[in-house]
Design a protein around this nucleic acid. Structure first.
Lengths: 338, 338
DNA sequence: ATCGGTGCCTAGCACGTGCTAGGCGGGCGG
DNA sequence: CCGCCCGCCTAGCACGTGCTAGGCACCGAT
């Protein structure tokens, strides 16, 4: 059903040649017009655009990629179910566009390993790849040998790739100091296991607790609502009940808050909760979560710019950016009643 | 950094020609080997794969697309922030793979209109496009003129495109009947405005209320947690407080549940809540939402198969699939106390 | 009148791959 | 010994576009 036009080639997308024939000029001239280069009269430009619109012509990305090796595409490998990634992606699009790049998404799902998604992105010959989320040093290094790479999130170092990460340790200290200042003494940390940043957040928590001579208690968790709900059950078994919880990330914190409220406790009345990420979910009015914000648009900007520097400015040495974190006090923290 | 091999063309991905040269055969033979066609000895195949691995060769999707017009790619237009879409995508990947298709994601975000995302997908010459979420008949029809199209969600009809939608009216009736059977008489509906399926869900709600001689009350809403939280505030102003709420979708329901609990009410003790979608968020243990499930993997399957039938089997007449919905009774509904 | 320049346009190669039309050698039936 | 087939392989065109190397007409300066 595409192309009901008069090119004599039914069921096929019209090409530049079709547009050129319709206008009565050479194909090269149509190419010039579409690239906005000089060398065509204004009248011709108008007629070309007119004809293209009538034919429903659209440039063939495959042919453009094939011919011009600069692919103008950034590959982004992400996990669709991760709200923080979703927020990042929405920030990455306009940044990439500002630099004249398109974005190709590669989804990493439970049924679809990272390697598979990577192969697909590489097949598209993306100019660079932004890797959101977890990855081992070996994986990142191997991938960086094949394409300029920016890893967003994991605290890795290497000369072959760039990273953008946040100051997780400092963020964690801010969060716990906030709780201590409110008067909390019995503060538990539900951690993020081996996920990106979890180790640093644990470290920050331990450091502040030690500094104030308070006992550190860590409940193993993950970056999911389920793990938060499970951890909340653990909490309820504690006697006395902790007065505050520092969660590994926002999703976990949300799970904790809801589970506690469901069990009849109030937040922050009975228990204060702090999250980590500053995801959009945390701002929702019914959640209103106190959290440590990672500057999402700043992170997206740094990641895109790292890639662009390698591509357009020819930078080859590695660059490791660390973004500041910021405590956002909202409605899930208050002084302890007990 | 790519290609540290010995092809004499630094900084460029190796091609079939490089592999062929390394093995000492023609490029055409390498092509045969990679496509798995007959016409190459087993020994040659092994040597080709070996050389390709050493060079880090990966087929160029652009060139493949350009040459073989069958693109083996399904474009999926979706909204990253929509959990229901995310669930669908995770189901679409394996379905597409089963039929030998790859998936190209096109993201529709607040800063990125549908038309823009569509242009990008069309640029990739995807064999077909699956359109998740809202769209007007005009938009869908226009798009369907350029590419085989399957609209998932909206209740539209036309001869130029396929649709997969769910029986929203029946689902709504199931939900409301469930509440009536529990003994609820004062049931409010927070609707989804003009979004996909919202009209049918309203209709189903009204029909059941009328049938039982109960007054229908509709609070305008949307398919978001925010709208649910706002609607909850409206609810609290009602006197007497309704004993049950039928929400337009799960996100809205989640917002309602959390806001109610935050205001000190219990769910389902004081108010019962039913959602719609059967999204993964609804199953989370701390939510445990009674909801109307739309069969996600069945929907994904039907959508992919509709596309495949047009592409591989040459179907041209439109096909409109309606998937059954199913009531899932969980922990947010109970008989009214009052 | 000649020359160089400028504005507008075109011819044709290259990109990496799929695929058609063969080519070459050896075994097998006649 | 001839002819044919078959297994393995190669030459070369085509896909739609970017881009280089021009070409033609016209204009102003010499």
């Amino acid at each position: 059903m595409p192309n009901t036009g008069d090119t004599g080639r039914p069921n096929r997308h019209p090409t530049m040649a079709d547009v050129a024939a319709k206008v009565g000029v050479s194909r090269a001239l149509v190419s010039i017009v579409f690239r906005g280069k000089e060398g065509a009269s204004q009248e011709t430009r108008d007629r070309v655009f007119q004809a293209a619109a009538e034919l429903g012509y659209h440039p063939d990305t495959a042919a453009q990629l094939l011919r011009s090796h600069r692919s103008r595409h950034l590959g982004v490998l992400y996990t669709p179910a991760e709200p923080f990634h979703v927020d990042l992606i929405e920030a990455i699009y306009p940044m990439a566009e500002k630099h004249g790049y398109d974005v190709v998404l590669g989804a990493q799902t439970p049924t679809r390993a990272m390697t598979k998604a990577v192969e697909e992105l590489l097949g598209f010959r993306t100019a660079a790849v932004l890797l959101l989320g977890d990855a081992t040093l070996a994986e990142v290094t191997r991938l960086a040998a094949r394409v300029p790479l920016v890893a967003v999130g994991p605290h890795l170092r290497g000369d072959a790739f760039d990273t953008v990460s946040s100051d997780d340790s400092r963020g964690a200290r801010l969060a716990v100091e906030h709780l201590v200042e409110l008067g909390h003494r019995h503060i538990v940390h539900v951690d993020g296991g081996v996920k990106a940043g979890a180790a640093d957040r644990r470290r920050g928590y331990r450091a502040v607790m030690r500094k104030h001579g308070l006992p550190a208690t860590i409940i193993p968790g993950a970056y999911t609502e389920e793990s938060g709900a499970l951890a909340a059950r653990e909490l309820l078994r504690c006697d006395p009940l902790p007065t505050a919880v520092f969660a590994g990330n926002d999703r976990c914190a949300v799970g904790i808050v809801h589970a506690l409220r469901r069990f009849g406790l109030t937040v922050p009345g009975d228990v204060s909760v702090v999250g980590f990420d500053g995801s959009r979910a945390a701002q929702l009015p019914h959640i209103d979560l106190t959290t440590v914000r990672q500057d999402i648009s700043g992170t997206a900007e740094a990641a895109v710019e790292s890639a662009i520097e390698r591509l357009d400015d020819g930078r080859t040495e590695a660059k490791h950016v660390i973004r500041k974190t910021q405590l956002i006090v909202r409605g899930t923290t208050a002084p302890p009643k007990r």
